[in-house]
Nucleic acid binder design. Structure first.
Lengths: 145, 145
DNA sequence: TCGGTACGTTTACATTTGTCAACAAAAAAA
DNA sequence: TTTTTTTGTTGACAAATGTAAACGTACCGA
């Protein structure tokens, strides 16, 4: 029942998470110092955010000596995938493809990324449908054509 | 100064926008009726949402006879791209590629989409970098490797 | 041992968002 | 013309979010 809802991560919280994910685990002091290299958040603010992340089960703590060490409860990749899938779930079905294409155009991808992507696409092509239905206006004649 | 901030569109609001985008323009009655085929939102709630969208400049109105006709101020595709780009801007640079790959795996794409995508990738491959830097922990030795 | 520190917890407060009910003006119906 | 319905506007309220000060307490250096 200790479900971890990725959607409950706000943008401010994402920033803290990224640090913890990257370091593997970190003390509040570390997180505070690092975040402040980019953001003008007060120490207080960051402590509050850390607390909320723990309450949301996105971070867990371990008592290390006198202080706490924070560590993520889910892998970064999982969180990213969940969040992205979640967003796409709210977009018009028919236009997801074009949107991904735009995304690709706007992204800096490594050769390796591109090659993996090509493989995935190659594989998908065979049993890809000719068209996907739009459902923007449920149960109606009118819909994205 | 009448800026249209896509990021200010909440998930509830997206649902209304999709309907307006699809229909091109619509009266409140239409929107209400259509939304209620999926959501148990009261008429009041929907009216409030419409009002907020107008205030946010995401919808504009035209007096048609006695009522208003709502129409979007930005194209759906623009909104989708902005939103997606916005989300990706907050993800670890290094992992965007893999995340897009996962996204593709989870998406239903038409043959046409896939083919366009392949073309874009083909074009990008030539001058794609061998690797992109992570900046999860600004100005630090430790970072995603 | 005692005052200063560092750290986690509590409180606090303005906005935004999700959800609605109550209104007022205008139109349609009776 | 009186009544009813429709439609947009206001006001409300709880929960979530951004932002931060105040506390209590355990520890550390003097």
């Amino acid at each position: 029942m200790t479900e971890i809802q990725t959607e409950k991560m706000t943008s401010a919280e994402w920033e803290l998470m990224r640090i913890v994910w990257t370091l593997g685990h970190a003390g509040s002091r570390e997180v505070i110092e690092i975040i402040q290299r980019k953001r003008e958040w007060s120490e207080s603010t960051i402590k509050t955010l850390l607390g909320r992340l723990v309450k949301k089960n996105l971070l867990a703590t371990t008592k290390e000596g006198r202080n706490f060490v924070y560590h993520a409860t889910i892998p970064e990749q999982t969180a990213m995938n969940d969040t992205v899938n979640d967003l796409f779930a709210s977009l018009c079905n028919m236009k997801k493809g074009i949107t991904i294409i735009e995304l690709i155009k706007n992204s800096t991808l490594t050769k390796t990324d591109i090659e993996s992507m090509q493989k995935v696409l190659e594989k998908k092509l065979s049993d890809a449908p000719d068209k996907v239905e739009c459902d923007c206006v449920p149960g109606a004649a009118m819909n994205c054509k």
